[in-house]
Design a protein around this nucleic acid. Structure first.
Length: 301
DNA sequence: GTACGAATCGTGCATCGACA
DNA sequence: TGTCGATGCACGATTCGTAC
């Protein structure tokens, strides 16, 4: 059980909704797929670190700030004498190592993860120093995807390839470690310093009118659904969901995309594409949300 | 499988009440 | 004073769970 678990960021959720409800440009789509793949890789790495038996604290996904510089750490493990941090890459296919430019198989230059690692290491050292801790800092780039190959790579202990991952974690797990109150204090401080509201994701611009309205399927995201009694049935995959649940799920999407907008049955009626009557929507909202005000000034919170 | 009751839903109508 | 969205009520239809 990690000291700080990873949660899917609100911006990634927003991107997913936008992908379903509007036509993204090719670049936006590519960017979203890369973000999603990166997140999946991090989750995959989390599932491996969770198995560690040694006395350690795992903190996933930290966004910290030192001297007005923000930086993100995919995964952190605090041992007795060492602060391990990890940059997880879910790259797939052949990549070519070049000290100047890391290149994908197609020859497209990408940022060398070692540069990112060095920068994070410097900032972490500064942060620990500022907080008054004297721990050794070690960083690694984890290539999590088994289909990844890095050509022309120098021997560098900072890179952990898929074939090395299990051995690496096993070695890490054998590290003698005994945590005490100082480590608990550090872990709590890091969680407190974590800037959950800061997002490194750049969302496409969107407006209500350009978004697709309607209820969608929880199983396959299709908007081709039928309402039969109390249930919504997907015409594509056959997934069955209670109407009330589908409406509330849709309301959550609306709230994510328009956090400052008011919610009433009329707006949600439109957001759901008019598939469900306003009275039914009103009843559903009334059961799960708090209503403030009356008549046309009523707002659900 | 059938019967039954409870819960839920859709519809229509009237009413409420702050606002323009 | 008209507008407009929420609300209450009545009624019938549908769905669901339970017992037999």
């Amino acid at each position: 059980m990690p000291f700080k678990a990873r949660v899917e960021s609100e911006d990634l959720k927003r991107f997913k909704i936008l992908d379903q409800r509007m036509l993204l440009t090719a670049d936006e789509k590519k960017y979203y797929k890369a973000l999603l793949k990166g997140y999946e890789g991090e989750v995959q790495f989390d599932s491996l670190t969770e198995k560690l038996q040694s006395d350690s604290f795992i903190l996933n996904d930290l966004v910290l700030e030192v001297n007005h510089t923000k930086f993100q750490i995919d995964s952190t493990i605090i041992f007795q004498n060492t602060y391990h941090f990890f940059e997880v890459k879910n790259y797939e296919g052949d990549y070519i190592y070049d000290p100047e430019n890391f290149k994908s198989g197609s020859g497209k230059p990408i940022q060398n993860p070692l540069d990112q690692l060095k920068r994070s290491k410097t900032l972490i050292r500064q942060l620990l120093q500022n907080l008054g801790y004297n721990l050794q800092v070690e960083g690694h780039v984890i290539f999590i995807n088994p289909e990844f190959t890095l050509l022309n790579a120098p021997y560098d202990l900072s890179f952990i390839y898929p074939s090395q991952l299990n051995r690496f974690l096993k070695k890490l797990d054998m590290k003698p470690s005994r945590l005490n109150n100082i480590h608990i204090k550090l872990a709590n401080q890091l969680v407190a310093l974590h800037q959950s509201k800061v997002s490194m994701i750049k969302l496409p611009t969107y407006e209500y009118d350009q978004l697709k309205k309607g209820l969608n399927c929880k199983g396959c995201d299709s908007f081709s659904v039928s309402v039969q009694g109390k249930k919504q049935i997907c015409n594509e995959c056959g997934y069955v969901e209670m109407i009330s649940t589908a409406v509330l799920r849709s309301v959550e999407e609306y709230k994510l995309l328009f956090p400052n907008w008011k919610i009433n049955s009329n707006i949600i009626f439109d957001w759901c594409g008019g598939a469900i009557s306003k009275r039914r929507i009103g009843r559903t909202l009334g059961k799960s949300l708090k209503i403030v005000g009356v008549h046309q000034w009523a707002v659900y919170e």
